[in-house]
Design a protein around this nucleic acid. Sequence first.
DNA 1: CAGCAACTTGACGCCGCGGCCAAGATAGTG
DNA 2: CACTATCTTGGCCGCGGCGTCAAGTTGCTG
Lengths: 185, 185
Amino acid sequence: MRADARRNVEGIRRAALDVFRTGGLTTPLDEVARAAGVSKGTIYHRFGSRTGLIDAVVEELVAARIGDIIEAVDALDGPLLRFEEYLLRTWLLQYDEPAANDVLMRVPPDSEPLTTLFERACQFGRRLLHEAQTAGVVRADLTPDDLTYLILERGVIVRACDQQTRDDYHRRLDFVLRGLRAARG
Amino acid sequence: MRADARRNVEGIRRAALDVFRTGGLTTPLDEVARAAGVSKGTIYHRFGSRTGLIDAVVEELVAARIGDIIEAVDALDGPLLRFEEYLLRTWLLQYDEPAANDVLMRVPPDSEPLTTLFERACQFGRRLLHEAQTAGVVRADLTPDDLTYLILERGVIVRACDQQTRDDYHRRLDFVLRGLRAARG
DNA sequence: CAGCAACTTGACGCCGCGGCCAAGATAGTG
DNA sequence: CACTATCTTGGCCGCGGCGTCAAGTTGCTG
């Protein structure tokens, strides 16, 4: 690979990080190209497809954020707190980072890094759900699929209702959490 | 207006009722045209725009359904039951009738009949919310705007997650309703 | 039955985006 | 310096839907 090509690859990666950060993983590749100072064709030449480009940046862009949540939530006390805090932080991440939202919603075509990332978040959530249900603090009729849906739903909402303020969004999340608690809790 | 034109107008209206019923108010007009056995141009000639066509059918298509809900719910006993049943039925209507969903989400450009219809549903909901809050059975921090949002959100979800079964959808609505009740309820 | 006004048609331009590729530019080597 | 393999460019096509209009057709009237 020639030196200029290597430079371009790096430039495109940086540009993608930047553009995807604010616009999500579905931003037109022309914008990435413009930000990188190359043409659209070069991106396709270097990364094969949008998916290829995403795979090249998703780790740095999203994995860390999800890892942070898992780590922080895992350190909390009490199954209800952990469960609710996990959902809350994930939902807020979906609001704050369109790219993370895209991963959680499985918007881009599946690929190995994306699946890995998604599964990691998913598994963790299921563990928390199970613990919380065992402790009797969360509705027993909530299924792992429901959990996935709760996150998917929120993603859809974030995408569609982009005019709502973060504060309003946050306040309304509390309504949803309440609905998931066990009746006696 | 010539006889064939009058026939066509009626045919287009019928076709629109049919097509919009299953596909919502954003179905491509070519489909309506095909169903009516005319060309797209004729629709534009006769109704001016998609909005014009919608106005011509929305009454028959949606108003009745919303009216039914208001009537049925109004006859129920107890402010909590009325409030919850109103939301539940509206949410199910959104699932069952894409066209009604479009109206409730204000998808098509505003027009007088659409606004009227929307406001009617909205006012009724606000009344029920107020009654329920006065009775102390629904969270006091729920605002009328939240109510609008709860319906808008559901609309977005219905549109995006069209693979979920009605039963699952219905079951999950219960989670949401629980979250809206007053803490002691 | 002629002739015109009313009516209908369907192809066309437009838009934004995705993906591709022939032609031109350039880095690095002998 | 010249040459070639590598690389980049940007224009082109496809897609799906909207809205329009010149040209062709048809109902109605005298």
